[in-house]
């Protein structure tokens, strides 16, 4: 552990309060929108949030480039990123939990399998409902639909994301060897793969809505499908944007063989998104 006396402590932090106001505006606006109001307040909040992030990260980047951060500060950053990713894992765990619960418990119960009141549940309330996965419930909410096959787009997307994990690692090795230009090239590839993934995902959603009648409202299958893939897609977007920023910083001659925490943080995040996708691919699409 290095000596704490060189630990960098900013004197003033003006961005957090901007962030709080931004979040407040965003949430308040979102609530208003959901209750049938305007989208305007929410958009203003989102814009302010982006402004805050640009300003805040800008400040951190310039401090970092000015050498304000000791190795110990670097460790703090690393730990925070790690545990932040862990918290994200738990966020997804809630939705995976919902998926598993619906598949192992509620579905079978509704179809009469299981102890306690399951048989009566089926006989009295939902007679005729046989559990299969996927399903949209005994009332067939949303009507007839087709399930999303794992062959085709999802498989391509899996390959894309896995490849992007490789390109990301190549970029990492490059910066570790001090080759910034190579890092930028491979990062560019990673970002492109990432955005391609998001594009294809959007296309898949279009397919689902337009041709398969698979929607958020398609019972529990549609619910879990869109909730999991939706939040994942959102995270891919964020990850790709972060990588893009890191790439631009690379073109500005930021980072060195020993000092490239931002890159690593972005890369960790990217791998996390990758792993979540694997889980999704297996449990949402294949099984």
């Amino acid at each position: 552990m290095s000596s704490p006396s060189s630990y960098y402590i900013p004197h003033e932090a003006k961005w957090p309060i901007v962030g709080s106001v931004a979040l407040f505006t965003f949430f308040y606006g979102f609530g208003t929108l959901l209750n049938g109001g305007t989208w305007f307040v929410m958009a203003a909040g989102a814009a302010l949030l982006v402004f805050m992030m640009v300003g805040w990260f800008g400040e951190v980047i310039s401090e970092s480039e000015n050498g304000a951060y000791s190795a110990q500060v670097d460790v703090s950053f690393r730990m925070s990123m790690m545990w932040f990713i862990f918290s994200e894992v738990m966020f997804f765990a809630a939705f995976f939990g919902a998926l598993f619960y619906a598949r192992t418990f509620s579905g079978p119960w509704l179809s009469g399998a299981g102890e306690g009141g399951a048989a009566a549940t089926n006989a009295v309330l939902w007679s005729g409902f046989d559990y299969v996965w996927p399903n949209n419930g005994p009332e067939k909410l949303g009507g007839a639909y087709k399930e999303m096959s794992w062959l085709g787009l999802p498989l391509i997307n899996t390959i894309l994301l896995l490849t992007s994990g490789v390109t990301c690692t190549i970029a990492h090795h490059a910066i570790q060897a001090g080759d910034r230009a190579k890092m930028v090239r491979w990062l560019l590839a990673t970002c492109l793969l990432g955005f391609l993934f998001v594009g294809l995902q959007a296309f898949e959603y279009y397919e689902a809505y337009a041709h398969l009648n698979l929607k958020m409202t398609t019972g529990i299958y549609g619910s879990t499908f869109f909730m999991l893939t939706g939040f994942h897609g959102f995270h891919v977007c964020m990850g790709a944007i972060i990588l893009l920023i890191v790439m631009f910083r690379g073109t500005r001659k930021h980072f060195s063989a020993t000092n490239h925490f931002a890159f690593e943080a972005a890369a960790w995040y990217w791998h996390f998104v990758d792993v979540v996708w694997l889980g999704l691919f297996i449990f949402v699409y294949i099984l």
């Binding site: 619960y101 619906a102 119960w109 419930g137 009332e139 909410l141 958020m216 019972g219 619910s223």
Partner: peptide, 17 residues
Amino acid sequence: FFGTSFFNAAGGGDPVM
């Protein structure tokens, strides 16, 4: 707000979930 049925038996979900 978005018509999902996590907690709705009619759609295959469960309030107990």
